[in-house]
Amino acid sequence: MKDTQTKKLALLVGCNYANTPNELHGCINDVLAMRQVLINRFGFDPNHINLLTDAPGSLVMPTGANIKDALDHMVDQAEPGDVLYFHYSGHGTRVPSIKPPHTFRRLDEAIVPCDFNLITDLDFRNIVNRVPKGATFTILSDSCHSGGLIDKEKEQIGPSSLKNSNFTPTPTSIPIITKSKTIPFESILLHLSSLTHINTPDLATHFLELFGDTASLRFRFPSHEIDSIPSLHEDNGILLSGCQANETSADMNPNGGNGKAYGAFSNAIEIVLKENQGDLSNKEVVLRARNVLKIQGFVQHPCLYCSDDNANSLFLK
């Protein structure tokens, strides 16, 4: 007999990029903390939580291919009514989406796995399109330029729907080392070029040379095929982003590097959930996280992208 109980499945990815010029400090802490929240607050079975980090000794590293394999596996298991959750803490970036000689070069959002095999907004759109009707797939991305990380998803809270206040951060007496969770695409191009030894500014050439079929759809498909990938009218994707597409998210290293490091957005979400024990809608979670970051003096504005119904549905319920 088929088990009709709702499944709750999660993939948590933390990339610290240790001992590289792009090193962060709080990303692994973020997903370890969220793992406990999922178990204690939302009733996730620990056996249904997949944790990928680039900590020394990790058996499965959070490469682009491994993250996408884990996401595909999670979606393949999903049935109507299931709750899927992906939490990413690490670097983000924006890349030009259309090659020359086109004059218009839109910037597309992406996360940066430990091997630089980018996962772009189009990849997340493709994954969301596969989620069964009646299930939900929530993405929480604590990374720079994370607004709009699901291509063509409807904005509920963001630059077009809320005006940003002219807020001046309050100076703090606690020594805090802050680093933006972004890698400019020029730096990604330089890194990839050093591996391929191909002299071209075209990112797609380098990604296809290094990663082949595991490269992002952005780099594998012609532009006319990319444009034909639809967004569903009422899809099941819910994106909580750490900032707007043109902003950066902060990685915090308190007490001069001697305290417990964390991502500002992940930490704000934890504070919101701790201070509000009752159910919260996705919209309430994002608005309250915005307020926490504002009070703390951060200049980043979390956003929400999803359907109208999912904006008012309960977070991870």
Rank of each mutant, 00 (worst) to 15 (best):
L24V: 01
L24C: 02
H25I: 03
G26K: 09
G26E: 05
C27G: 05
C27N: 07
I28V: 13
I28L: 05
I28W: 01
N29G: 04
D30S: 09
V31P: 15
V31F: 00
L32V: 08
L32F: 11
L32D: 08
L32M: 09
A33F: 01
M34R: 08
M34A: 02
R35K: 15
R35Q: 15
R35G: 09
V37R: 14
V37Y: 06
V37L: 15
V37P: 12
L38V: 07
L38S: 11
I39M: 09
I39S: 03
N40Y: 12
D45Y: 00
P46W: 09
P46K: 05
P46M: 08
N47D: 15
N47V: 01
H48V: 00
I49K: 15
N50T: 14
L51S: 04
L52S: 06
D54I: 00
D54E: 06
A55W: 03
P56N: 06
P56H: 07
P56D: 11
P56E: 13
G57N: 07
G57D: 13
S58G: 04
S58L: 03
L59K: 14
L59Q: 15
L59Y: 09
V60T: 15
M61F: 10
P62S: 11
P62T: 09
P62F: 05
P62I: 03
T63D: 08
G64N: 11
A65V: 11
N66L: 06
K68G: 03
A70E: 14
A70W: 09
A70Q: 13
L71Q: 12
L71G: 10
L71M: 15
H73V: 12
H73N: 15
H73P: 01
M74N: 05
M74E: 03
M74K: 04
V75H: 04
V75N: 08
V75L: 13
D76E: 12
Q77P: 09
Q77C: 12
A78F: 00
A78I: 02
E79G: 11
P80W: 06
G81C: 06
G81F: 14
D82E: 05
V83L: 06
V83Q: 13
V83K: 13
Y85D: 01
H87K: 11
H87V: 01
H87T: 03
Y88F: 15
G92T: 07
G92M: 04
T93H: 02
T93K: 02
R94P: 00
V95W: 00
P96Y: 05
P96G: 02
P96F: 04
S97Y: 03
I98K: 02
I98F: 04
I98R: 03
P100D: 04
H102A: 14
H102C: 07
H102K: 09
R105K: 13
L107V: 01
D108R: 14
A110C: 14
